[in-house]
């Protein structure tokens, strides 16, 4: 029994799932977004009229759909972790594949949104609101892509049977990062699209 427990991935009780290093990274990323959110909020306070007016031009429906897409994708990743904890590599990879596909849906919807804005001649220099809207969403957009890349690596390893009941820190690490991407959008969507 004791020899067996030695082979299980060392995971101290009380620490979050996945590699500890990813959590440093997650909190550093959250800090970056947090500063950005704060900057948005205080810049808005000096320019309430402009922000309220420009906000009406956003496509709120696509923002909301994207929130649903990421939430669901996050849930699929939870199922992937659950699957590998049962030793079901195949299912784990399938859930991850579904999560990545939803990430793709997010990207496509977002690209339509960007396309509409750019073809309306909107750029970073249009006004302070659009500067924030574009840089916040593009910054988050790049994190979605990075998250998909991470999940794709994890999926490939899961498909080839690289994880097991005992060793699956990698799945939890990728999952934690993906939840962070979701969490950021959960704050970004109401802040930029709804609150007025």
């Amino acid at each position: 029994m004791t020899t067996q427990s030695l082979t299980i991935d060392a995971h101290e009780p009380g620490t979050p799932p996945g590699d500890l290093a990813i959590w440093f990274f997650i909190f550093a990323e959250l800090l970056a977004f947090g500063i950005f959110f704060g900057s948005y909020a205080f810049a808005r306070a000096h320019n309430v009229e402009l922000f309220n007016q420009s906000q009406l031009m956003l496509n709120r429906a696509s923002g909301a759909v994207n929130a649903l897409v990421l939430i669901t994708s996050s849930y699929f990743v939870v199922r992937a972790v659950a699957a590998i904890k049962q030793g079901l590599s195949r299912q784990c990879a399938n859930w991850l594949g579904a999560a990545i596909a939803l990430g793709g849906v997010f990207i496509v919807i977002k690209l339509f949104e960007f396309h509409a804005k750019f073809s309306a001649g909107i750029s970073l220099s249009t006004n302070t609101f659009y500067m924030f809207y574009l840089s916040l969403t593009i910054f988050h957009f790049m994190h979605v892509i990075l998250g998909m890349v991470i999940l794709a690596f994890v999926m490939a390893k899961a498909r080839s049977g690289g994880y097991s009941i005992e060793h699956h820190t990698g799945v939890e690490t990728g999952a934690s990062y993906w939840h962070m991407v979701d969490l950021v959008w959960i704050i970004l969507f109401p802040l930029v699209y709804v609150i007025r």
Partner: peptide
């Protein structure tokens, strides 16, 4: 350069101490 650099520069370089702290 365009004004948005004042935001980008401030936000991102405020985080530059982190890697050094690490």
């Amino acid at each position: 350069t365009p004004e948005y650099w004042q935001w980008f520069g401030s936000v991102f370089s405020a985080l530059e101490p982190i890697p050094f702290f690490m």
